[in-house]
Design a protein around this nucleic acid. Structure first.
Lengths: 343, 343
DNA sequence: CTGATTGTTTATATCGTTTTGACAAAGCCT
DNA sequence: AGGCTTTGTCAAAACGATATAAACAATCAG
């Protein structure tokens, strides 16, 4: 009866309802110029044919896709998984879909995504940068093309654009200050350095706390590695198996800290009695590890929401020239049970 | 000099290079009919204008988007986060982008996404179903519209479509059989039941093991809840604070198991000496918990890859009528340190 | 010098919408 | 009745690419 064999177009609906395509478009769009009775007939026909307006055709004429592109380094890290979840959620709330690009911490891929997304596939971009230089370069092209974008998560020094970020330097400072106040002087740092841009701010804040407290900062206690649990495990073992070992560890993210926790257990040491540990990010697991982890909250949810709102406002208020939007969120130290006073 | 003020079209490139738009299209497409020297000029012009072909216009005429839509329940659960990561990775490898839809375990939203995605936004769909009935209904419309889709992760009884799934029943059986062989008879089950379709297969497999071993299955030890860590924590406390308490716990996913681990610790009991725990999914954290968790591996990576390949093959071999593709992966019991023999 | 052949380029139709301005029909007012 | 709104519908022109068939030039054979 109905030709359900293939996609139906506005012409099919028009023919079935006995009106022109223009009328169908108006009617389904809810225009007040169309008589209620014909709207009814058209809705009926559209229903029968299970009509869905072609996204591409509509996008082409309306010059919008109701889509935003989210670029992140890694969806396995709960931090980004949560950002993704939040972004999707709030975008959905405002009628946008999201297209997800995972760079896998590869500069080529980050560049590729930023490049290709100038092709009208999305109305705007949310970028969690990995390689600052790549992002900075591509951002210029995006600006030239007039595509709105918001930098999320990190502030790129000397770059003039919208951003929603966390004050990572301050977070590093808080972590170090906390440990120092507990009496720790020998603090090992598990430092993800696959990419030099990333841990830098946290480390700088960390150093500042040492400086302000008049304590010597031992660079031999800083050990670089990747960003996954296993890396933290490995590096913690190295740091702790030395006879002159640290009394506390600061991991640049919670995954590394969780790896470190396991390393400490395996070495027969106790957290926090023997070794104090501070993480960074406050992922959900941080409060379920044994012991629950003292860490610095990244407030991903807040960040995701703010970024989406900022981007969509930019997209929809085409007027919005003027200054760029800037939100710098202050991280918070979450004290749990993984640190102890030194005696 | 260059008008970098806004997006440039194929017409701009044509004018700058001194050829027609048709020639530009052919040239950039690498057609052998175009002289090398003019290709050169056209590439130059395109480069100067930073030209990117309009995705919407191209999609409209080519009837393809090189995009696939992935629908999952929840990106905070590492299982889905990993699926997402894998899908994105392999899709990228074959030149596809992914648009991510998170239903948040809401039937309305699942329906909405399945509905809207018939609008030519994507060339195909990957669906990790939450509400089987919703999916089954919408699948009919998708089929009618001729849009390829693959059901991922779970097999829907009596539904004729492509799928890549795990044999969850068998997984449940393996978990139970393992505990029974260790001598456990009183096994508490932490059962996520926000949606009745989800844990069912695992539970059935579990029951079968009891039946085959001739042990009475105590339904009062089955406790429903949500799917997050916190739920596992709460339910485990309930189950264990009774005087007639189980000697082992089976959690329907690893998040719940990790919550249970914390509950056991807080009750002053030891895993596995006092209580054995088996999880399900084998998320990365399962091997970093204390103690490392015995669990059933879901092989998400394998699953994600197989699903993408199957879908893209469907999309590209338009011919591929015939029978549907079906892959049922056998889950594997991963034995770590969270279970002990009963004495 | 004509006609066929080959090699390049271009005009034109198309994809499926939305959006104007035009137009016919109907209603109201002198 | 004739003019003037008002109301409801539609024809036609975008949007920016690709694909096809036709046009044009240059080369070659007879």
């Amino acid at each position: 009866m109905n030709d359900l064999k293939s996609k139906s177009t506005i012409y099919d609906v028009a023919k079935l309802a006995g009106f022109s395509p223009a009328t169908v478009s108006l009617a389904l769009g809810g225009s007040p110029k169309i008589k209620e009775s014909t709207k009814e007939k058209i809705r009926d026909a559209a229903g029968k044919l299970k009509y869905q307006p072609n996204f591409l055709a509509r996008g082409l004429v309306k010059q919008e896709t109701k889509t935003i592109c989210l670029i992140i380094p890694d969806n396995l890290n709960p931090v980004f998984a949560e950002i993704t979840q939040g972004v999707e959620h709030f975008a959905y709330g405002r009628g946008y879909s999201i297209i997800l690009c995972i760079t896998n911490e590869d500069a080529q891929r980050e560049k590729f995504y930023l490049e290709i997304m100038r092709n009208n596939r999305a109305d705007g971009l949310l970028v969690f940068p990995t390689f600052f230089q790549v992002v900075q370069e591509e951002a210029l092209k995006l600006k030239a093309s007039g595509i709105p974008f918001v930098i999320v998560g990190r502030r790129i020094e000397g770059m003039d654009s919208d951003y929603v970020a966390i004050d990572l330097e301050s977070g590093g400072y808080k972590a170090a200050d906390f440990l120092i106040k507990l009496g720790h002087k020998k603090i090992g740092i598990i430092y993800g350095v696959a990419n030099p841009d990333l841990g830098k701010s946290r480390l700088e804040g960390f150093k500042r706390a040492f400086l302000e407290n008049g304590i010597h900062f031992r660079t031999d206690f800083v050990k670089g590695c990747g960003y996954r649990i296993h890396d933290g495990y490995k590096v913690a073992k190295e740091l702790l198996s030395d006879k002159d070992r640290p009394t506390a560890l600061f991991a640049i993210n919670d995954l590394l800290a969780i790896g470190a926790l396991k390393a400490v257990r395996e070495l027969g040491l106790k957290v926090p009695a023997d070794i104090s540990i501070v993480g960074f990010d406050d992922i959900e697991f941080a409060s379920y590890s044994d012991p629950p982890l003292t860490t610095v909250s990244l407030k991903e949810k807040e960040m995701g929401k703010a970024a989406v709102e900022m981007l969509i406002d930019r997209i929809e208020n085409t007027s919005a020239g003027g200054r760029h939007g800037a939100i710098l969120i202050e991280p918070e130290l979450i004290v749990r049970d993984s640190c102890a006073k030194i005696i």
